Simulated assay, not measured.
Amino acid sequence: MSADPDAGPDIEAEPKDDVDIESDHDSDIGTANTMQARSSESRIKLWATMRGNRLLITVLLAVGFFLGFVIVGELFIPNFESTIHSDSMISYMFSTMISAIITGTTLVVTISQIVISQENGPLGDQRQRMSNTMDFREYTEEMIDSPAPADPSAFLREIISATDRRAKILRDAIADNGNDELRAEVDEFTESLIENAEEVRNELEGASFGSFEVLNAALNYNYGIKIFQVERIANDHPEDLTDEDMAILDGLKSTLSMFGPAREHIKTLYFQWALMDLSQMILYAAVPALLVAGSMLGFFSGLSLPNTTFGVSDTTLVVGAALTITLIPFLLLISYIARVATAAKRTLAMGPLVLRESQR
């Protein structure tokens, strides 16, 4: 780092400041790539909101609610059995659940209609969608020098492989450059990119669309900060880079930029797929939930269960189990929307914009 020429020959920056600035500069190049490394959230939270199977998450939520209900009923409400039969508590509880299930199911049907409406439109709009899709595929084929795959995971792998190849070309082109700082920056940057590309390609291998595996792997490719690094290297060392070097950097930047819209398109398709899955599952779960709620309302309001199971009142167990079953549609909604909302939050910005404090 050189001193300011206008400050005079006797004025130098303090050594400590030089070290701090250089350290920050190096940390920018080595920014974490994977979703886990980029966030400060625990693995358990990421698994629960993103990676875990949604049906398994729903079951765990249901089990947690049931156990919580039983514990509260047994430990904190000693007269729970008499309370549940007094003041029409059963009737109030499950009549409310019937209304909630019907309202929630109607809401889900509305969500499905919104998703379906996005696919409808006049012929001109459909033709424009097709034209935009084919233009993007043709540009991608020029970039990867091969036909663009039809499978979403293979399509993303080809783009990532293209960034990997161009990063290696950049590293080889700068290998003989006389600027040691430039060579060190490019080596660190390309090493990080190549390592990240290999990791994501392995995750995409065999991943099928419809599951979260494709989008989860795509989120682990931190393309935005890589675009920024390409721009920064070109801006910081214009005098040390030849026209050929600049062309290689521009090519790498273009390839990285293609990953953004490709990932966003696949993310949109996955969101639509997931919301339709959610709608179907809630509709399926609504029928047994209504049956249980109606049965409790019609048959259990005056029924007394004096026995216990494992030291727990049967009344508490039956009411807790019935209430849990009626909540299944809502728990499904929680598990699916948690994933969709988290993925959407992590991909709000397209391109080299850093929204997370941990990445600044």
Rank of each mutant, 00 (worst) to 15 (best):
F271A: 14
S192G: 12
Y270N: 02
I233Y: 00
K345H: 11
G294Q: 02
T106V: 12
S39P: 04
G124Q: 03
Q272R: 09
E181G: 04
T342V: 09
D135P: 02
V19T: 09
S153Q: 09
Y336Q: 04
F330N: 03
E195Q: 08
R127P: 00
H237M: 04
M50E: 05
R356L: 15
L327H: 05
L355P: 04
M350K: 11
T326V: 08
T190R: 00
V72K: 01
H25P: 00
S335M: 04
N177M: 10
S211F: 13
T342F: 09
R137D: 08
K267C: 03
T31N: 06
L269M: 14
F212A: 14
W273Q: 15
A3W: 09
R51P: 00
G302S: 06
A32G: 13
F212V: 10
I101V: 14
I174M: 15
I282F: 04
L156F: 07
T255L: 01
T105M: 12
Q126C: 01
R356D: 08
I84E: 05
Q359C: 04
N220T: 09
T110I: 10
K16I: 05
S91A: 14
D125K: 11
T133Y: 13
L353G: 02
I160E: 01
A62C: 02
D10M: 00
E142R: 12
G260I: 02
H237N: 11
A3M: 06
I159D: 06
H237P: 06
R43I: 01
V108S: 10
K253Q: 14
L241N: 11
L331S: 01
A274C: 05
E199H: 09
R157C: 06
T106H: 05
S117G: 11
I98P: 03
P147Q: 12
L193N: 02
D314C: 13
R183I: 08
D151M: 05
S257M: 10
L303Q: 07
A162M: 11
T242K: 00
A322N: 04
D145I: 03
I102Y: 05
L353P: 02
R43M: 02
K16Q: 12
F299Q: 04
H25I: 03
I227G: 00
I84P: 00
A167M: 04
A322F: 03
T268A: 15
T255K: 00
A349N: 06
E41H: 12
N33G: 10
L256Y: 03
S82V: 01
I227Q: 13
L278K: 00
A32C: 01
Q128S: 05
A289G: 05
N53R: 02
E199R: 15
S153E: 07
I174W: 06
